[in-house]
Design a protein around this nucleic acid. Sequence first.
RNA 1: GCCGGGGUGGCGAAACUGGUCAGACGCAGCCGACUUAAAAUCGGCUGCCCCGCAAGGGGCAUGAGGGUUCGAGUCCCUCCCCCGGCACCA
Length: 787
Amino acid sequence: MDRYDAATIEEKWQRVWEDERAFHVPNLPGAARHFYQLEMLPYPSGTLHMGHVLNYTMGDVITHFRRRNGSTVLRPMGWDSFGLPAENAAIREGGHPREIVETNIEAIRIQIKRLGWAIDWEREVGAHNPDFYRWTQWLFLKFFERGLAYRKAAPVNWCPNDQTVVANEYVIDGRCERCGAQVESRNLEQWFFKITAYADELLRYDLPPGGEWPERTMAIQRNWIGRSEGAEILFRVDELDLDIPVFTTRPDTLYGATFFVLAPEHPLVERIGGDDVLAYARQTAAKRGEERAAEDEKTGVFTGQYATNPVNGERLPIWVADYVLMDYGTGAIMAVPAHDERDRQFAETFELPIVEVVTEEGELVNSGPFDGRPANEAKAAIVEMLREQGLGAAAVSYRLRDWSFSRQRYWGCPIPIIHCEGCGLVPVPEEQLPVVLPEVEDYRPKGVPPLASNLEWLNVACPSCGGPAKREADTMDTFVDSSWYFLRYVDPHNDDAPFDREAVDYWLPVDQYIGGIDHATGHLLYSRFFVKVMNELGLLGFREPFARLFHQGWVQMGGTKMSKSKGNVLGPDDLVADHGADAVRLYILFIGPADQDMEWTDTGIEGISRFVRRLWRVVGEVAGAPADEAAGPLTRKAHATIAKVTDDVGRRFSFNTALSAVMELLNELARDPAAPGARFAAETAVSLIQPYAPHVAEELWQALGHERLWEQPWPVVDQAMLESETFELVIQVNGKVRDRFEVSAELGEDELVARAKASPKVQAQLDGKQIRQAIVVPGKLVNLVVG
RNA sequence: GCCGGGGUGGCGAAACUGGUCAGACGCAGCCGACUUAAAAUCGGCUGCCCCGCAAGGGGCAUGAGGGUUCGAGUCCCUCCCCCGGCACCA
């Protein structure tokens, strides 16, 4: 055979697959078994790096594996092309975001095709295309009708660099996830999705049979949602004829409340406090949350007013203090310094009384009729007592906030709303969709929405009264686009609806989703929320978008995560040119377990290149020899490898060990390429490596006299070949291996023990001692217990 | 502090339900073959310590310490360290 030439082989087969539309599937194929394989779509803000290569190669292996195991596989690709990453890239490079994005898409498409991934290109979608965002707008209107998209003034995160609001989910350690600038808190009127209404729903995972999410992802979402059970209790301020509600998780400590605290932002501060209190509250409220938390000493002022403890009538002084937050619970607390660390600190600073009400044994004291009762039991009893008096009730509080999704930026999906002075917020009529993103003179961020600068676009007649009105000029967060893109893939050219329900119910939930864990509290939560709402709208028949989820690890270089700022971002282009796409694909999956961070090394890929050339040479040699049908040890090894690879790829997602197994098979074949069973071993190695290295596999398959490996059924294990007539019996004495030898698989337990005892090495160990017990593990070992 | 995930050779890692002297496969390293030479390729060695000229033999090793078991990297308890999420959240 000729020398191995990756570029020629790879180009040849890529052309065949493209000409044949090899990986295209119909919307409703009517196949008995089908599989939706999806990886998170890329932002076209640059080109692909090795993290993408890992992600999509993994998806590719699963795609080929499932196809060859008899499933019709949907495996699409698209572009998360709206939003800040693309827009910022455009600002950096100069030019219109659309041009930059489309140039990048073209470059990425070339990279993808060069890597030979099995994608149905007829389903390509891009968030910035009007025929996609028309339906993003349509979905927004459905949410709006249901009150699930609404406007309110609220403290939101403002990124001073990107000049826009940023969602809580994408503020990391107080910084904008996109640009790293410290975000500010601003009270602005913004659009929100009412994701909090689904907090409990989102804590449940209604996965279909076989569905599974990583524990750590569910834990992150759980922490983010932050559900706590407790009670809401009313505290009366007689002098002002007020009842102030308080949320607590510890109603059992109610008798230990010695003071009462309002958050500085609490609306009642104005009514309760004097000028000095108001001044303190204003000053404190102006500080950012983190700044406030970072201060060691708690600060506060007494208002001069008292609230009544509903269980014992005690008058509790009302304070305003920085450690109570307005945006959790009710913004007011009962302070129990004996049983709350923060309240204790505050009480010590301001010399307020501390009353213990729960003993170390967990029994109530100083608690009137509840003395002596276990705390967890008293919790319910006290809430019940308050409920009867109309002074409290069981309540649940969440950490999750509504999703703010309006952005004061250009490059996003326009929000199809018209502001009319008379009619208020008027939806753009469905038949007028899409509201096309208008051209503007200058799209750079200035803190006011750039769309507002195009007056011709902005000023419209109100669809309701016909009077003068203005369009909404904010655009949508790009995470709105990615909350439903996986549904559009199923029916991407539909002009009458976002998708056909039958097609969506056929393919979804996505069988296998692959992407970074960094989206655990963002995209992955938003998508679940969207699907639940769409289910209630009757648009689809399931409650969870993704049945199985897998997070790839980070590809690192020099011990650190690749990032643009560190200048260690490695792309596939040079590597593909030097080693071929197959070698790059093989190596990225061979470095280590795919869900673990991995260190890229140049010597590593050279090792894999050696393996590919060795495969080429050895299989070529076998292909050149006359075919033999004889079976031998190689046949047995080949079947063992089929079993191992099938399990590793299909069940365990252990791509590195599956590849090791094929290497072992090749090593054994290389030792004697003329041995009985060599041809079967060669065919098996090629067939099993095909999902990883489809080009060289296809070429070798042809050399072996066959055709169209990508359509061939996955190899089947002959169980009989795995069973052996003999096995190596291990003999242990007190758990330590002392001897081993081949024995017949037919032998009974007594006979195995007898052979063990007869071993001279065992005899030497016995040294006259008694054999007290013999443990036999059939087919494996005998352990003699002596003493 | 609470919640989750981890800790195995020089390196990336195997060992899947407790059972084959723990370390497959690969990288790096060392020795050798082929070659005028190099590359490529092929063969061998490669956890640590001790005894032995050698063949071989013995002991110790999976973050630390206990425990369960005939047998523990794997199960249980305590602790240490690393990574991630939440955090004045009442």
